[in-house]
Design a protein around this nucleic acid. Structure first.
Length: 978
RNA sequence: GCGGGGGUUGCCGAGUCUGGUCAAAGGCGCAGGCUUCAGGAGCCUGUCCCGUAGGGGUUCGUGGGUUCAAAUCCCACCCCCCGCACCA
């Protein structure tokens, strides 16, 4: 009896550690062997087709984690798969050091940030003596890079390390300079201004991750309507709804807030004190002339610039002087707050008297309806406050009411007759045009402000600042967008559903500020004090991999890497002799580099997690289309989900951060890879559960033992039905795995290669009860299918199988269609079906069987069966017609009544048979069922612990006390159990 | 709000494009048996409900619809995840 025991590597004290040690040993062994044999070092080979895969270099302000490993494993699987298919595969690696976080992290260490240091020690596992040196960001980056390199190697990735670099190496910086000079020349980099959230203390933009409070807040642009107070003084009221200017009745000023009269770019404005401060940061010259309380303004009048009417200024305490200009105009018909404030004043006339005003002025103020919107009448603001029962301007429900009205009127509102040239238009359609028009007419301006407070990590409240002299990548350029879309259409994207996302991102992308003031990185070549921002210096660096090998090998100095040199290498531009003598790089080296670039480019596949779709991956496409001809545009992008830890998002601070190093050391490379890959494919998020990894470890150990057992058995030289079956099934598996891998469906591919094939082999062994040469051959194929996923164990088993060379570079199994044997498979299906039916009956009998009798269908039933199936397949189920045809056969004519019954039964049950199988059965024709059941008799007897007898339904001598034999159908023998 | 992806049997997760083969792959978990000195190991069997004969019943976010037939197609609704910019 063939059985597989799991005792080969047991360890008395602790079994799982015993496994681990063994697996680790073979992992180390093979990693060393690969390195020594340099099998992953790829050089141009004109005889072989190339394949260039890349992973977005990871940022080195911390250790790599299992999330990186997830994406990297997918790439590695693909790289290994392609390599086995005979491609010359290049999989390089590098490290991202550019940007602020590395500096920031280093600063926090220098400042002695306890929480931060605790995380470095506990999560990242940084030893005390190293930690001290982290005050130098470069040291920190070096430390993490070294740690990560070790971890990556331990994961067994098939990388060509000769091309490694980090992004602050002077040679790389020369490359980036070349890139940006080029982009600028082509007009893709432009100068501009941009509002950012700014910390006045740190003197730098405050990104989301730099914030103590206000994560996700972005600057909002208010339109300022410049109401005239007198001939030369303006009262700029801030609004998001400038279209409501036609419905203004008054202005609100907070009587208790401080306002100023100031010269703003030479114009006299009255705004809140805060607003004046803010405008200073928004490219305005601000000269404050006088400060005063808002109450001074109450009762004065102003002129509406579109209607030229004069209206009063009234007191409104809901006006927040911190928001925008602190001046608000009132549209009581459409703004709940305005209506409520007005009502408050009406109800308490004494308030106005306090300001020395006659309450009668309120009588003149009538709401002006200007927007028609479904579901509301003339005055939506009034209606909704009544409906919602909003008490006054201090009621929190006022906020909600405002939101509802705003949304309703924006999406469905139509401007009424009194809106002059905008009458009859939809609010949403006209808004932008209207703002532009008003600005042109000089009656509107704008300013930025924050909808909610943002506090920097240094605890300083942030403001909106407009940066001057910023450099932008002109992603808004429609022509550029078109080119990128063209690239997307030409390339393959895995999964396909991500394509739409890319296309919308391209449309949505605006100009991107590509330079920063602080952080590590490359100087903007034409502007001192600016550094190319991280997402902008990582777009075409894959080209740098192709030549960094030479830069290192020939010790090429950064100053030798001139613009002309890069132009020659990447574009073939210029006269090589001249470039060589000018740069000092020998001619043959220049040629070599040029050729190496031409050999490897374009990138054949780049894979990352989906979070990079709206930024890095799309930038990668933008820059390639800008700088390279279409033949060098990327060929494919793979996108995968994010990695969750025990069902939750991974966070250092949440204590569920799993470093790559830790995972590999605890569970081993193969188990780590498989667990990650089995977790998800497509854009689904994968979930890392320690329970799963442990199971996987066991599974792989079992796999090893299972295979080892097969290798050790001598193996009979037989080639019968079961061998044909195994080989046939294997062809299908090869096909499935190959096809899924091609589509980056790594999960399905692994699932099939590992579990489905395993089950097939188990079935074979169970049926066969001994090992054979065929089984050993199958094992070889199986190991090859598994190698991309489980390279170390496969390599070990391969060597034990005395396989030639490394399995990592062995030939990928090819499907041999001729070995797919439908009849054999169908026969085995009959056995499987028979077992299922038998087991079902036994289950219902509720007692163990003693004897089982099978009756195979009579000859004439087969004729009826095949004929009927044919007709069903062809789509004409006319029973009468079938009977007529069959009646020509004398044998059937005798049993025409039974035949008719059979036909209707077949018709009924045929829906349970797949089209594919119907086709197969028709192709095969009559199967000798008796023979195959007899063949499987021993196996079946053992399975059911019962004696078995097989008869044909027509057998005169059959034992059939319950007359079950008549039930026999082709492919479904009748059963009787005692 | 906008955009992208999803909701399947105890769990993870196929199946949905191309309707019938779907009570629905595979894995995990759980239960029973075997093996073992022992085992969080391995092997076998079972795992929606009912059934002393291979059968029947109820399921695939919710509610409708199309069809001889729907997890799969159409419509409406509910829920979850991700991204939204100067930041890697």
């Amino acid at each position: 009896m063939f059985s597989i025991d799991g005792k080969t590597f047991k360890n008395k004290e602790n079994k799982s550690e015993g496994n681990m040690e063994f697996l680790k040993k073979i992992e180390e062994k093979w990693q060393k062997a690969w390195e020594k044999a340099k099998i992953f070092e790829a050089d141009p080979n004109p005889k072989k087709q190339k394949f260039f895969v890349t992973f977005p270099y990871p940022y080195m302000n911390g250790p790599l984690h299992v999330g990186h490993a997830f994406t990297a494993s997918r790439i590695d699987v693909y790289a290994r798969f392609k390599r086995m298919q005979g491609y010359n595969v290049l999989f390089p690696w590098a490290w991202h050091w550019t940007g602020q976080p590395l500096m920031g992290a280093s600063e926090r260490v220098a400042k002695g940030d306890e929480e931060f240091i605790r995380i470095l020690k506990e999560v990242d596992g940084v030893p005390e003596n190293e930690l001290k040196k982290f005050v130098d960001p470069i040291y920190m980056a070096t430390y993490y890079t070294n740690e990560s390199r070790t971890a990556v190697k331990k994961l067994g990735l098939s990388i060509d390390w000769r091309r490694e670099f980090n992004t602050i190496m002077p040679t790389y910086q020369k490359f980036i300079k070349w890139q940006y000079e080029n982009l600028k020349e082509k007009g893709y980099v432009i100068r501009g201004t941009h509002p950012v959230i700014w910390c006045p203390h740190c003197k730098s933009p405050t990104g989301d991750h730099d914030r103590q409070e206000g994560v996700g807040v972005t600057p909002e642009e208010y339109t300022l309507i410049k109401f005239k107070l007198d001939e030369e003084t303006y009262l700029p009221a801030a609004t998001f709804r400038p279209e409501t200017i036609y419905g203004v009745t008054n202005i609100w000023i907070n009587p208790d807030a401080t306002y100023v009269k100031a010269l703003i770019n030479g114009e006299k404005w009255i705004i809140s004190e805060k607003a004046a401060e803010k405008l200073k940061e928004q490219l305005r010259k601000v000269d404050i002339k006088r400060k005063f309380k808002g109450r001074e303004l109450i009762g004065k009048t102003f002129e509406n610039p579109v209607t030229k009417e004069r209206m009063p200024i009234l007191p409104g305490w809901f006006v927040d002087p911190e928001q925008a200009t602190g001046v608000v105009y009132s549209v009581p018909a459409h703004a709940p707050y305005d209506w409520l404030a007005l009502k408050d004043l009406q109800e308490k006339p004494e308030i106005l008297q306090e300001f020395g005003l006659n309450p009668k002025i309120l009588e003149k103020i009538k709401p002006i309806s200007i927007i028609k919107v479904e579901g509301f009448g003339e005055y939506p603001a009034i209606e909704i406050t009544r409906k919602m029962g909003v008490r006054d301007q201090h009621d929190p429900k006022a906020e909600e009411a405002t939101k509802i009205i705003y949304k309703k009127e924006f999406h469905g509102g139509i401007l009424k007759e009194n809106c002059m040239e905008y009458a009859g238009k939809k609010v949403r359609d006209v808004k932008e045009q209207l703002i532009e028009d008003f600005k042109k007419r000089g009656i509107a301006d704008s300013m930025y402000d924050l909808p909610q407070p943002v506090i920097c990590r240094c605890l300083t409240p942030c403001i909106v600042k407009i940066l001057e002299d910023q450099w932008f990548l002109k992603y808004s350029d429609p022509k550029w967008k078109e080119k990128v879309k063209e690239a997307i259409k030409k390339m393959r994207i895995y999964p396909e559903t991500a394509t739409q996302w890319f296309l919308t991102v391209v449309d949505w992308l605006k100009d991107w500020a590509c330079a920063r003031r602080t952080g590590l990185g490359t100087q903007v070549p034409w502007s001192k004090g600016w550094i190319i921002e991280t997402l902008s210096d990582s777009t075409i660096y894959m080209a740098f991999y192709t030549i960094n090998k030479h830069i290192k090998k020939y010790k090429i100095k950064p100053e030798m890497l001139t613009k002309e040199v890069f132009n020659y290498i990447f574009y073939g531009k210029g006269k090589i002799n001249e470039i060589s003598s000018k740069s000092g790089i020998e001619k043959h080296i220049l040629e070599e580099m040029h050729n190496e670039f031409l050999y490897w480019y374009p990138v054949d596949l780049r894979v990352s997690a989906k979070e990079l779709v709206p930024n890095h991956l799309t930038f990668f496409l933008f820059h390639h289309t800008a700088l390279f001809p279409p033949k060098h545009w990327p060929k494919a992008i793979g996108v995968n989900g994010m990695l969750m830890i025990e069902g939750k998002q991974m966070h250092k601070s949440k204590g569920n951060f799993v470093t790559l190093k830790n995972a590999v050391e605890t569970y081993g490379a193969d188990a780590t890879r498989c667990t990650l890959l089995l977790g998800a494919e497509g854009m689904d998020d994968s979930d890392w559960r320690s329970g799963n990894v442990r199971d996987m470890q066991n599974k792989l150990q079992t796999l090893y033992n299972f295979a080892k057992k097969i290798i050790e058995e001598k193996g009979e030289n037989e080639r019968g039905h079961l061998e044909k079956w195994l080989i046939s099934i294997l062809q299908r598996r090869i096909k499935e795995v190959t096809e899924n891998l091609e589509k980056m469906k790594t999960r399905t591919a692994l699932e099939t290669a590992l579990f489905e094939v395993w089950n097939d082999i188990r079935w074979y062994i169970r049926r066969k009860e001994k090992t054979t040469k065929t089984l050993k051959e199958t094992l070889k194929m199986w190991l090859k299918l598994l190698t991309p996923f489980i390279p170390h164990i496969c390599e070990e088993l391969w060597s034990e199988l005395k396989g030639e060379g490394f399995i990592s570079i062995a030939e990928w199994p090819k499907i041999n269609e001729k070995l797919i044997d439908l009849e054999t498979e169908e026969k085995e299906n009959i056995i499987k079906g028979l077992i299922e039916d038998t087991a079902n009956i036994i289950k219902v009998m509720k007692k163990p069987p003693k004897k089982i009798f099978y009756y195979t269908a009579a000859e004439w039933k087969w004729k009826v069966y095949l004929k009927t199936l044919r007709r069903i397949k062809d789509g004409e189920i006319n029973i009468k017609k079938i009977i007529e045809e069959l009646a020509r056969d004398n044998e059937i004519k005798e049993k025409i009544k039974d035949a008719a019954k059979l036909i209707s039964k077949i018709t009924r049950e045929s829906s349970k048979i797949s089209e594919k199988r119907k086709e197969n059965i028709l192709k095969i024709g009559k199967i000798n069922e008796k023979e195959i059941i007899e063949d499987a008799k021993k196996f079946l007897e053992k399975k059911f612990h019962a004696e078995i007898e097989v008869y044909s339904e027509e057998d005169e001598k059959r034992y059939d006390p319950k007359l079950k034999a008549v039930q026999a159908m082709p492919c479904k023998p009748a059963i009787y159990i005692e």
